[in-house]
Nucleic acid binder design. Structure first.
Length: 490
RNA sequence: CGGGGCGUAGCACAGCCUGGUAGUGCGCUCGCUUUGGGAGCGAGAGGCCGCAAGUUCGAAUCUUGCCGCCCCGACCA
């Protein structure tokens, strides 16, 4: 294994791939476009899952599970939805193999053709709304607030670990409401949950907004999203929350009797985040030494490394480490003591930096004599010697500080890379350098399409909190009421 | 599906042009020395050179066909 990572500033893609590989997060599998998530990567994902799941439960949602297979006829029912996903569906046509009569191996048994093809879910609106027909009869059955954790398959042409894989893990919330107002409130609430998670757990600032009609989810009335800026100046859509109106209810003939004793169609939302968040986490914070994890999502928050020559030295160090470990664990901090003799301490320093462990404690014979311990923090790479009696308290405070510091650093980066642009020349120049560009847009899909063709920039979102400001469209010169966020995106 | 590139040890690659003993680095095994930031030296193990056919006394190398992978575009959580 080569020692140095590629430089982030020189080749961002290669740097990203190397971190994913060498920090033991994931690798490409033998199956085209699919990913193997390795134990360390999965441990981070599990922490994300748990935090998100708690937030969903706190907002009244329950988990359930629906089938992997969607009959083709279900997917067809909502027209726009069907059209949007048709190009990337994996299809099951047979249910049996048999021995090859002409030689070795197996062949698909032509007699086992399914009457109706089954689609491997690219998303579950269709199969879920088909089920909701039997679950929803009366206003008393609403709101129906369901989430599922599952895998979905979208047959992408080109894939990248975590950011775009043919199969990915995600959660998808699917809710039904008696009124439009309530459904819109749910859509916005869940966007808020995602923004909260991104900022307070992932330490990643996001812009909340709505998508332009071009970028909307297939079948949605409105798509809300959170957009984050990566260190190479490209945008990443980190989560979406859709207001689906009554489209799916009507397509799947889901009706309820309202309080006025009238038949009505329920209003729907759906919202999801995926293992793409892992990609976001990596790209938002990591540096030339490897992954940088915010303490709240680090599977190992503190690693303790002994620095010794003899087994006797190691035993003396281990004696000092034991009570520190206990105290840290009692404080709810996950800690690992790496006394593995197969690797040298210098190797371990580099290894845990690569893996983004927030705090490293180094303890050697010199420390034992002085009553000190070395505390190193991953985000700034600062090291300092502290009195061994203070270390537990120091680490507790440090972890909190780091969570905040990592967020602030990312926020500063985003602010320094967000630009107000008013002319087409400026726009073209800036888009090459990257970043979020706040510019006026005339609101037409045609203009958006032209800008995309000419610059590869897309409208990431129309920010929710932006102030009204009249101006001229960057491209057409027509009137515009507010600025939108443009960027090149992943 | 369009445009490029690559298949040689676990990994990364050289060798191919100009055919003649299968190479280098990392990793792995063993030994000695090292040990406060990815150790040094020595010895070793490890190959269907993507597959198939052809040319040739002889093919990793030349020719043809097939298969697979990667990158750039269109698509996208």
């Amino acid at each position: 294994m080569s020692k140095a990572l590629p430089k982030r500033s020189e080749n961002y893609s290669e740097w990203y791939n190397e971190i994913v590989k060498r920090a033991d997060l994931a690798e490409n599998s033998a199956v085209r476009g699919c990913m193997v998530i390795k134990p360390y990567g999965f441990a981070i994902w599990e922490k994300m899952q748990r935090a998100l799941d708690d937030m969903f439960k706190a907002t009244g949602h329950q988990n359930a599970y629906f089938p992997l297979f969607v009959p083709k006829s279900f997917l067809e029912k909502e027209e726009e939805h069907a059209e949007g996903f048709a190009k990337e569906c994996a299809v099951v046509t047979h249910y049996r193999l048999k021995a090859n009569p002409d030689g070795k191996g197996l062949i698909v048994d032509p007699n086992a053709k399914l009457e109706e093809e089954l689609i491997i879910r690219p998303t579950s609106e269709a199969i879920i709304w088909n089920t909701y027909r039997t679950w929803i009869q009366s206003w008393r059955d609403l709101p129906l607030l369901i989430n599922q954790w599952c895998n979905v398959v979208r047959w992408e042409m080109r894939t990248r670990l975590f950011l775009r894989t043919a199969e990915f893990l995600w959660q998808e919330g699917h809710t039904a409401h008696a009124t439009e107002q309530e459904a819109v409130a749910e859509t916005e609430q869940m966007l808020g949950v995602y923004a909260d998670f991104a900022e307070n757990w992932m330490a990643m600032p996001v812009v909340q907004g709505v998508k332009s009609p071009n970028e909307r989810f297939a079948g949605a009335i409105e798509t809300y999203c959170i957009e984050a800026l990566m260190q190479d100046g490209k945008a990443l859509q980190a989560g979406t929350s859709h207001f689906l109106g009554q489209n799916f209810a009507k397509s799947f003939d889901v009706k309820f009797v309202n309080k006025e004793n009238q038949q009505d169609y329920p209003w729907a939302t759906s919202w999801g985040v995926s293992t793409r968040l892992m990609g976001a986490l990596i790209m938002a914070h990591s540096d030339d030494n490897g992954l940088v994890l915010p303490p709240k999502l680090a599977p190992i928050q503190v690693v303790i490394i002994p620095i010794h020559k003899t087994p006797e030295d190691l035993a003396a160090i281990s004696g000092k480490v034991a009570p520190i470990m206990q105290e840290l664990k009692a404080a709810g901090i996950s800690v690992k003591y790496d006394d593995d003799d197969k690797q040298r301490s210098g190797w371990k320093f580099a290894e845990y930096e690569l893996k983004g462990v927030p705090v490293r404690l180094g303890l050697g014979m010199r420390d034992l004599e002085n009553g000190t311990i070395e505390v190193a923090r991953r985000d700034t790479l600062d090291k300092q010697s502290v009195a061994i009696g203070d270390v537990v308290e120091d680490v507790k405070i440090l972890l909190q500080q780091m969570q905040e510091a990592i967020y602030q650093k990312a926020l500063r980066f985003r602010e320094e890379n967000t630009f107000l642009v008013d002319t087409w020349e400026e726009f073209n120049a800036q888009i090459e350098k990257g970043g979020f560009i706040m510019a006026h847009w005339d609101g037409t899909p045609e203009t958006e399409e032209k800008i995309k063709e000419e610059t590869k920039a897309t409208i990431r979102c129309i920010p929710l909190n932006s102030t009204e400001e009249s101006g001229k469209c960057i491209y057409s010169g027509k009137e515009s009421a507010k600025r939108v966020v443009f960027a090149r995106a992943y």
